[in-house]
Nucleic acid binder design. Structure first.
Length: 417
RNA sequence: GUGGCGGUAGCUCAGCUGGUAGAGCCCCGGGUUGUGGUCCCGGUGGUCGCGGGUUCGAAUCCCGUCCGCCACCCCA
């Protein structure tokens, strides 16, 4: 029969099989519903983009650009990249379609696959699905809060209660350079108090010396606690902005923890940054993360335009739902036709056509099962009504009701009132 | 990309120090149950991840490789 080794899905990818779909759909449907309720409109962008889009916006030094991009040349010699994140493509579409002429902010969302070449693990894939929500064209802190609240509402709505929201502001082009200078100075003086990984960070990406703080040796933690944080260096405008975001979150009833060392992995972020962490242990706890990106649109050749948004992992959210013991049922069958010996097949086909036209979900046996097998199958499908069809009549069975014997001519009307 | 652990039926796993493959669940059939999710009996189903090596003989030992999981890195 089959020759050669069995072909399996590519490393780091996964199938969402029918058994997984109810939970998966629930996440996506609720997300879309909440987006619509807040005025976010759906947009779809290509799954691949010109490589420069990500190189320019994410930052040449970012992990994504350095080691995680799926980059390839097409037959025309173009360098293309499977999108590693959703924000830059949406901003590209915003510029390309002149959405700056529309009423601002333009509020958009999309759900689709993202690609990152990293070592697969539980909850971490090379192809994973993400909900991306973006509000472009306003620097109002109320928009930051709205977008954060949107994901918060999604978690509540889905029944996930075990999560934490970490919040920070990383300043703007005005105040961040000054802070970086302060930090560099401090690092230079205190280098001998740090361990090797932290020293390497200090050289490569000083903002990230605080990463994974809890795992560092106690003396290193003690030292880092004395280091200057961005919060103390925010300019007045950024500081006011950040205060306003917090006031709105309070008004929304969203609780958060201020984490002055929270820095995100992409270079385009400014001011507000945040991360929702879920109940799963380990490095895959991040459910969603986002921030403001006031310089991004300019970087890709558009007019100076502020924006905020986040990306949220669908698989991680599904994992959180499973952790919270949330379940969802598959779609049910209204009517199942079980055929006894001598049943008129053509009549059943006609009933199927008519019921489906009326919007009644119905099915029958195609596996040559015994009558008992068909009834068992009907029960497993969760059929509301099972019709046992004989040569001259039928019997309609519903849970908790007496069987109803009907003429073949009356089946349709009795089964679909 | 680095290190550790692991891959046996669709799923969860057993298979002792090498002797040539098993259970439960699932699926199908039969019986029982008022012809429907229970229970009982039976059956289908396996390139032991893949390739090579050692051996009279490999699921079992060795090497390589692929895939998964865990940690690191980093993220969703």
């Amino acid at each position: 029969m089959s020759r050669g080794p069995r072909i399996e899905r590519p490393r780091g990818t996964h199938d969402v099989v029918p058994a997984d779909q109810p939970l998966w759909r629930r996440v996506v449907v609720e997300a879309e519903r909440l987006c619509a309720l807040s005025g976010y409109l759906p947009i779809a962008t290509p799954v691949f983009e010109e490589t420069a889009l990500f190189e320019r916006t994410s930052g040449a030094g970012s992990d994504v650009v350095q080691k995680e991009m799926y980059t390839f040349q097409d037959r025309g010699g173009r360098s293309l990249t499977l999108r590693p994140e959703g924000t830059a493509p949406i901003c590209r579409a915003y510029v390309e379609h002149g959405m700056h002429r529309e009423p601002q902010p333009v509020k958009l969302y999309t759900v689709g696959p993202m690609y990152r070449y990293s070592a697969p693990q539980r909850g971490r894939f090379r192809e994973h699905w993400q909900l991306s929500v973006e509000a472009i064209g306003s620097d109002d802190p109320a928009v930051d809060a709205e977008v954060i609240q949107l994901y918060h509402a999604l978690l509540e709505r889905l029944g996930v209660s075990e999560f934490e929201l970490a919040l920070n502001s990383i300043g703007c082009r005005e105040c961040r350079p000054a802070y970086l200078e302060l930090l560099d100075e401090w690092l230079a003086v205190n280098l001998d108090r740090l361990d090797r990984p932290t020293r390497e960070k200090a050289a490569a990406n000083p903002l990230r010396v605080f990463d994974n703080f809890d795992a560092k040796p106690a003396p290193v933690q003690a030292a880092l606690r004395e280091a200057p944080t961005i919060g103390e260096s925010l300019c007045d405008a950024c500081s006011e902005h950040f205060d306003a975001v917090q006031r709105d979150l309070d008004a929304y009833g969203v609780s958060y923890e201020l984490v002055p060392t929270l820095v995100r992995g992409l270079d385009y972020y400014t001011r507000t940054t945040w991360e929702f962490a879920g109940p799963e242990k380990g490095a895959q706890s991040a459910l969603s993360g986002g921030g403001r990106y006031d310089g991004l649109i300019e970087q890709i050749g558009g007019p100076s335009t502020p924006g905020v948004g986040f990306g949220a992992g669908v698989e991680r959210l599904v994992l959180a739902l499973e952790h919270a013991k949330v379940s969802a049922s598959p779609p049910s069958v209204d009517v199942f036709f079980a055929l006894a010996a001598g049943a008129p097949h053509e009549r059943v086909v006609g009933w199927l056509r008519e019921l489906r036209a009326r919007g009644v979900a119905c099915d029958t046996d195609y596996a040559g099962r015994s009558l008992k097998g068909q009834l068992t199958h009907a029960a497993r499908l969760g059929a509301v009504a099972t019709v046992v069809v004989g040569p001259d009549g039928a019997s309609i069975r519903r849970a908790g009701r007496a069987d109803e014997d009907v003429l073949l001519d009356d089946v349709l009307e009795r089964v679909s009132p």
